[in-house]
Amino acid sequence: ITGDVSAANKDAIRKQMDAAASKGDVETYRKLKAKLKGIR
């Protein structure tokens, strides 16, 4: 179950990262990237 949750989280975070990148929001992008590392 835990694996599914983190996989879903990663997917959601990647989508947020894409949105931040397209807006040029480097700050948010970095925060999300750090979150991704924390999940692993």
Rank of each mutant, 00 (worst) to 15 (best):
Gly38Arg: 14
Glu27Lys: 07
Ser22Lys: 14
Gln16Ser: 04
Thr28Gln: 08
Ile13Val: 04
Ser22Met: 13
Lys31Met: 07
Arg30Ala: 05
Thr28Met: 08
Asp4Leu: 12
Val5Met: 13
Arg40His: 11
Thr2Ala: 11
Gly3Phe: 08
Lys33Leu: 15
Ser6Arg: 12
Thr2Leu: 09
Lys37Gln: 11
Thr2Pro: 10
Ala20Ser: 02
Glu27Val: 06
Ala12Ser: 11
Leu32Ala: 00
Ala19Arg: 06
Lys15Ser: 05
Asp4Pro: 09
Lys23Arg: 14
Ala8Gln: 09
Ile39Asp: 04
Gly3Val: 12
Ile1Trp: 13
Gln16Ala: 14
Val26Gln: 07
Ala12Leu: 12
Ala12Gln: 09
Val5Gln: 09
Arg30Ile: 06
Ile13Thr: 03
Gly24Thr: 02
Ala21His: 07
Ala12Thr: 11
Ile13Gln: 02
Thr28Ile: 03
Lys35Met: 14
Ile39Thr: 05
Gln16Cys: 09
Gly3Ser: 10
Lys15Leu: 08
Ala34Met: 10
Lys15Phe: 06
Asp11Met: 14
Asp18Ile: 15
Asn9Thr: 14
Arg30Lys: 07
Met17Tyr: 02
Gly38Tyr: 12
Leu32Pro: 00
Gly24Val: 02
Lys10Pro: 10
Ala21Ile: 14
Ser22Pro: 01
Gly24Ile: 03
Gly38Ile: 08
Lys15Trp: 05
Ser22Ile: 09
Gly38Phe: 10
Asp18Gln: 15
Lys31Asp: 01
Val5Glu: 08
Ala21Thr: 03
Lys37Ile: 09
Ala7Arg: 13
Glu27Gly: 02
Lys15Ile: 08
Arg14Pro: 02
Arg40Pro: 07
Ala7Ser: 11
Lys15Gly: 04
Gln16Leu: 14
Thr2Ser: 12
Arg14Lys: 07
Thr28Asp: 02
Ile1Asn: 09
Gln16Val: 03
Arg30Gln: 07
Lys37Arg: 13
Ala21Gly: 03
Lys15Ala: 12
Lys15Thr: 05
Tyr29Leu: 07
Gly24Asn: 04
Ala8Leu: 13
Ile39Glu: 05
Arg30Ser: 02
Lys31Gln: 05
Asn9Ile: 15
Ala20Gly: 02
Ser22Tyr: 06
Glu27Gln: 05
Gly3Asp: 10
Lys15Met: 08
Lys23Phe: 04
Lys10Trp: 15
Leu36Ser: 00
Lys37Tyr: 07
Ser22His: 07
Thr28Phe: 05
Ser22Asn: 07
Arg40Leu: 14
Gln16His: 04
Asp11Ala: 13
Lys15Asn: 04
Lys31His: 04
Ala7Asp: 08
Gly38Val: 07
Arg14Tyr: 08
Thr2Gln: 09
Gly38Pro: 03
Ile39Trp: 12
Lys35Asp: 00
Thr2Tyr: 13
Ala12Gly: 06
Lys33Ala: 12
Met17His: 01
Val26Trp: 15
Asp4Arg: 10
Ser6Glu: 12
Lys10Arg: 14
Lys37Asp: 14
Asp4Gly: 10
Ala21Cys: 15
Asp25Leu: 03
Ile13Gly: 01
Arg14Gly: 02
Val5Asp: 11
Arg40Glu: 13
Ala12Phe: 11
Arg40Met: 14
Thr28Glu: 13
Ala34Arg: 13
Asp25Ala: 01
Ala7Lys: 10
Thr28Pro: 00
Asp25His: 02
Ser6Tyr: 08
Ile13Asn: 02
Ala7Pro: 09
Lys33Val: 07
Glu27Ile: 07
Ala19Asp: 12
Asp4Asn: 10
Leu36Glu: 00
Lys37Ser: 08
Gln16Gly: 04
Asp11Glu: 11
Ala34Ile: 06
Gly3His: 09
Asp25Thr: 00
Gly3Cys: 15
Ile1Gln: 10
Lys31Pro: 00
Leu32Asp: 00
Ser6Pro: 08
Arg30Gly: 00
Asp18Leu: 15
Ile1Phe: 13
Lys23His: 05
Arg40Gln: 13
Leu36Phe: 03
Lys35Gln: 10
Lys31Trp: 05
Ala20Phe: 02
Lys15Gln: 08
Gln16Tyr: 04
Asp11Gln: 11
Thr28His: 04
Ala34Tyr: 04
Ile1Thr: 09
Ile13His: 02
Lys31Ile: 05
Arg14Trp: 06
Ala8Tyr: 10
Lys33Cys: 15
Asp25Trp: 03
Lys10Gln: 12
Ala8Phe: 13
Gly3Arg: 08
Lys10Ile: 15
Asp4Ile: 10
Ala21Asp: 02
Lys33His: 06
Lys10Leu: 15
Val5Trp: 11
Ala20Thr: 02
Ala34Thr: 04
Ala21Phe: 14
Val26Cys: 15
Val5Cys: 15
Ala7Glu: 09
Ala7Leu: 11
Asp18Thr: 12
Lys31Phe: 05
Asp11Asn: 09
Ala21Val: 06
Ala20His: 01
Glu27Phe: 03
Asp25Arg: 00
Leu36Trp: 03
Tyr29Lys: 00
Ala34Leu: 09
Lys31Tyr: 06
Leu32Arg: 01
Ala21Glu: 04
Lys37Gly: 05
Asp11Leu: 12
Gly38Asp: 07
Gly38Ser: 12
Ala34Gly: 03
Gly38Gln: 14
Arg30Thr: 04
Asp25Ser: 00
Ala8Asp: 12
Ser22Phe: 07
Gln16Pro: 02
Val26Phe: 15
Leu32His: 00
Lys23Asn: 08
Asp4Trp: 05
Leu32Tyr: 03
Ala20Asn: 01
Ile13Asp: 01
Asn9Gly: 08
Lys33Tyr: 12
Thr2Lys: 11
Lys33Pro: 00
Gln16Ile: 04
Gly24Leu: 03
Lys33Gln: 08
Val26Thr: 09
Val26Asp: 07
Ile13Lys: 02
Arg40Ala: 12
Val26Arg: 07
Lys23Thr: 07
Thr28Arg: 07
Val5Asn: 11
